[in-house]
Simulated scan of single mutants.
Amino acid sequence: MVVLLVLGVILLAAAVALMALALRTDEEARGVNRSLAVLQAMGSAPRELSRDLERPFADRVVEPLRARALAIGRRLTGADSAERIRSRLDAAGNPAGWSVDRVVSGKVLCAGLGLVVGIVVAVLLGASFLPGVAVTLAGLVVGFFGPDLYLYQRGYDRAERLRRDLPDAIDLMTISVEAGLGFDAAVQQVAHHTAGPLAEEFVRMLREMQLGKSRTQALRGLAERCNVDDVRTFVSAMVQADSFGIPIAQVLRVQAGEMRIKRRQRAETKAQQVPVKITVPLVFFILPCLFIPVMGPALLTMMDNL
């Protein structure tokens, strides 16, 4: 009886195992069949249905997010902000990939990023309610005005580079004109043999003249884009010389002398500003270091006597 009971239990367990194996194999087969059916459906689906799945991540996620940020940014910045941003982009040299819409959307995205960073910093510092709110708002404001600050700094650096390169460019232009070249050919020589933002502006001016603009219009466009006093003075002199028929070589020679004088005056001005600018680090950083070895022993002696 015991042997028959054990044999029955073994047979029952074997039957249950075989049934479970059969069910599992059937379920796996059905799963594989469903996967194959999905793949076949995707392969035979119309192009319009599978086009969204084939688009890259930037087109599916980043571009819609940027479009929403652009709509929000246009409401926040106002209607006249496009011209101001465009002028800043011209002053900064129109960086690659930067446009008015990208700057507006970037302001909103950077504001959101600054808000998140501010919250994280407030949590890490363990600040209370008011300091935490202040840190969060500071991150929001810095993020929102971050692209504007970047464009301003890049425009300022570019203006300084233009102001520094203009005298040498006028000297080269004067030599080219006196050697027999015309003004346009002299500008082309300067653009070809120099590098930097001034050469890029000269190249753009020549292309505008090739597209149909007059020399006066191209020069005035150069002055508006650069927004540098020396460049405006040079453009005004060239426009007047072109209008009144004054020899270009004589005007260029006078402009070269004035630019050299202005450059020397700017260097003298910066040299005279050095004593004033060095006062703050001298008082707060250098003098305390000198007081320690000079006054330290005397203070220690006074403390011992008292």
Rank of each mutant, 00 (worst) to 15 (best):
V6S: 13
L7H: 01
L7V: 08
G8M: 15
L12V: 08
A13Q: 12
A15I: 05
A17Q: 08
L18M: 14
A20E: 14
A20T: 13
L21C: 06
A22Y: 09
R24L: 13
E27M: 05
A29N: 14
S35A: 14
L36C: 02
Q40S: 15
S44L: 03
A45W: 11
A45D: 05
L49G: 02
S50I: 11
S50P: 00
R51Q: 10
L53R: 09
E54A: 12
A58I: 01
R60C: 07
R60I: 05
I72G: 00
I72V: 09
G73E: 06
G73P: 02
R74A: 03
R74K: 05
A82L: 09
E83R: 12
R84E: 13
R84S: 14
P95W: 00
W98F: 15
G106L: 09
L109S: 05
L109V: 02
A111V: 05
G112P: 03
G114M: 10
G114Y: 09
G118I: 01
A122L: 03
V123D: 02
L125S: 08
L125F: 08
G126N: 06
S128Y: 05
F129Y: 08
P131E: 09
G132S: 11
A134H: 00
V135S: 07
L137N: 04
A138T: 11
L140Y: 12
V141D: 01
G146W: 13
D148R: 12
Y152V: 11
R154M: 07
Y156I: 01
R163C: 02
P167L: 08
D168C: 00
L172D: 07
T174R: 02
T174P: 03
V177S: 04
A179P: 07
L181W: 04
F183E: 03
A186M: 06
V187Y: 01
V187D: 03
Q188L: 09
Q189E: 11
V190H: 02
P197V: 04
F202S: 06
F202W: 02
Q210Y: 01
L211C: 05
R215L: 07
T216D: 13
Q217M: 10
L219V: 11
R220G: 04
R220M: 11
R220P: 00
E224R: 12
E224Q: 14
R225I: 01
D229F: 11
S236M: 07
S236G: 04
Q240W: 01
A241I: 00
I246Y: 09
P247L: 02
Q255E: 13
A256S: 15
G257V: 00
R263G: 15
R264A: 15
R264F: 13
A267H: 10
T269A: 15
K270R: 15
T279A: 15
F284D: 10
F284P: 04
F285S: 14
F285Y: 11
L287G: 04
C289Q: 08
L290Q: 03
V294P: 00
M295T: 05
M295V: 15
G296Q: 09
P297K: 07
P297Q: 08
A298Q: 12
L300D: 11
M303N: 06
L306G: 11
